[in-house]
Amino acid sequence: MTRTVPISLNVNGRPRTVDVAPNHTLLEVLREDLDLTGTKECCLVGECGACTVIVDGRSVDSCLMLAIEADGADVLTVEGLAADGRLSPLQAAFLDKGGVQCGFCIPGQIMSAHALLAENPHPSRAEVEEGIAGNLCRCGCYEQIFEAILATAEGVER
């Protein structure tokens, strides 16, 4: 068996210490060791974005990051967005605008959108298109996802 190494990281505002195998990705550790299954697995080559999480303020494909690389990092997953049982404005907008069909890509879409709005609170439509281009939606719900992100940005004070 592979030797495991303890790492400490902050996940959704909560300090966690977990023993990880060096060959396990952040995605595997989130899903299998920390039971945070909101982050999804699909392509495992950084193309689909279903596994998008935010590490130290930036969106990353957690399938392409070893968990051990996240030692000391701040990690935000979809489970960390709703506070006190209330949906975040983005989550609510995804529901209101119909940005969700099967839902499998949605955690990744929302995390990419979250990172986009954190950096650029009032993106243009083109910036939104580019901002989530790394998140495939096979249901083809892109128009509604754009609407949800733009509506969220509208709600943010300029």
Partner: peptide, 12 residues
């Protein structure tokens, strides 16, 4: 809003 939508946007 979609029935089942909350689970889909929260990851649950």
């Amino acid at each position: 809003n979609r029935v089942g939508g909350i689970g889909r946007v929260t990851g649950s």
